[in-house]
Design a protein around this nucleic acid. Sequence first.
DNA 1: TTATCAAGTTTTGTTAACAATTTGTGTCAA
DNA 2: TTGACACAAATTGTTAACAAAACTTGATAA
Lengths: 230, 230
Amino acid sequence: MSVEVPEDGIVSAILGAVAEQRLPAGTKLTEAALAEMFNCNRANVRRALAALAAQQVVDLIPNRGAFVVSPSPKEARDLFQARRAIERVIAREAAANVTADDIALLRRNVADEAEAKARRDHPTELRLSRQFHQELARIAGNQVMDRILADLTMRSTLIIGLYGRATLSNCAEDEHSGIVSALEAGQADTVVALMDAHLRHLESHLDFSAPRQRASSLQDQILGGASLVA
Amino acid sequence: MSVEVPEDGIVSAILGAVAEQRLPAGTKLTEAALAEMFNCNRANVRRALAALAAQQVVDLIPNRGAFVVSPSPKEARDLFQARRAIERVIAREAAANVTADDIALLRRNVADEAEAKARRDHPTELRLSRQFHQELARIAGNQVMDRILADLTMRSTLIIGLYGRATLSNCAEDEHSGIVSALEAGQADTVVALMDAHLRHLESHLDFSAPRQRASSLQDQILGGASLVA
DNA sequence: TTATCAAGTTTTGTTAACAATTTGTGTCAA
DNA sequence: TTGACACAAATTGTTAACAAAACTTGATAA
């Protein structure tokens, strides 16, 4: 496939921070700060921000800078409808192609997610929840839908950060577990129905009455204390 | 929504050239040539290319440059499956929301497309065919799927350029016309079925045995003789 | 207190120069 | 003719400096 370009390190670090909700919607991404953070020059930062803008993860406002996008309620609804369209097909294809190894991997993912939740390790929980959906896309074997889903789940994370109810539990791992069982049983229609219900469930837990906000240091948000190549 | 950045002129000009098959797959996009073509500096060109790479319209190869992507047969199949997933939902939503004005607009589009075909104005025909699908996305009212579809139809154009049979007629305008009629009649299920069949028809006309190639001057390909803001 | 304005500071935008890599060309020898 | 090699040209990658715009701060006046 396509060869990775150097500053994809910046892009994936920022995406990783968004995926773990360390970078909330609306955060300003200052060029000089990113350049110092990644030991590179501003030109590469600007290229990375342009790429993130094309993926609709940041807004580029002329003479103002780059900001993590803040999806509107309408966009949130549109996005979940798009996810249902894509993930229903992914679910069906995954059911057709799943192997025993895949089942084991998925069960491990569900278990890790439950454990992260028990530990109240919210970033890890979020990352694993997203990873579950991406794993299904991989099993389905359609790389175009895989990429589309990666973009959509990234923004879903932002949406949940903005509009998710305080009762943070996304209650997801039970539903994830059910999907794995249906996959193992080879019940394609059930897998599709469970996925659709799961996504509707996620969407139904959004509260558009009052978007939340947060902030902390850019450094912590992007590097997250851990290594940036992660 | 997101504010447009300056060098989006470069991005949209290149996308327009791809959409009309003036820029075939594999074409090298030299930075200096683009910079002179758009009277800007290389920094902006590089940002534009980074954005196009994020949209998967160009491949960025380190130290080699930017090339219009050449989708593989596998990617072509994956992409059409993704289009069916998205456009089936778009078709259903469009059927629910379509107005009389929309119908008139669509009929006009179909007529223009037929006329362009009669004139053997292949670029215009391609542009209008793509525009038909985008118009349905607009009517459906889901901006997330609208954007996804824009990306997919862009690459579909490249795929058709690469693998389309010599019998260029995409035979599309009849099928487009049928979709409009079903929309007007309010037969949502029929619209969905026709759209699905239409996309399968398009895909079935691909020939993966021997990808075609072409070349001409970058200047003509991107600017296409016409104004670049188009 | 509140609003306005004018500094100064920070941040983004632009440009040019230079370095590093790749590509093209021509020569020479087998 | 073919291949290897060296050299030149073209292209991409990097950096720093400067210009332009936006933001912050603090003083002033109603």
